[in-house]
């Protein structure tokens, strides 16, 4: 944690730069969304990569996860893993990846 005055001044500078970066990336996201890629899924992919990058900046710099105690990392890693389980297992249960992949023909 930045505690001494010098460090705090330094971090203020960093914060402002990151704020600007976030603004720039937002503009980029908006513009890219109007540019039609071969499939819309690609658009979504690009948009999500940008958003994840922005979210990463916020989490690492603003929420100073770049230097946090080990305990917090453990808790968050566990949580994120579960959130991903939510994202994917829900969808896979309704749309089985095996059937999608063509390896398994559900009509046989």
């Amino acid at each position: 944690m930045a505690d001494s005055p010098e460090e705090i001044y330094k971090s203020i500078k960093k914060i402002k730069i990151v704020g600007l970066l976030l603004g720039v990336f937002t503009i980029a996201t908006v513009l890219l969304s109007f540019w039609e890629l071969p499939t819309h899924s690609l658009n979504i992919l690009v948009g999500m990569i940008l958003a994840t990058f922005k979210a990463g900046l916020v989490a690492l710099i603003f929420m100073h996860l770049n230097h946090e105690s080990k305990m917090i990392y453990k808790i968050l890693a566990f949580t994120i893993a579960l959130a991903f389980a939510l994202f994917f297992l829900f969808v896979f249960s309704a749309h089985d990846p095996l059937v999608f992949s063509g390896l398994y023909d559900s009509n046989q």
Partner: peptide, 21 residues
């Protein structure tokens, strides 16, 4: 504790889940 988050759909076998899941 960890595994208990990853088993829930055993309550939903009858909902027409695919083979893999």
């Amino acid at each position: 504790g960890f595994l208990s988050f990853l088993v829930w759909a055993h309550h939903m076998y009858l909902t027409g889940m695919g083979t893999m899941m």
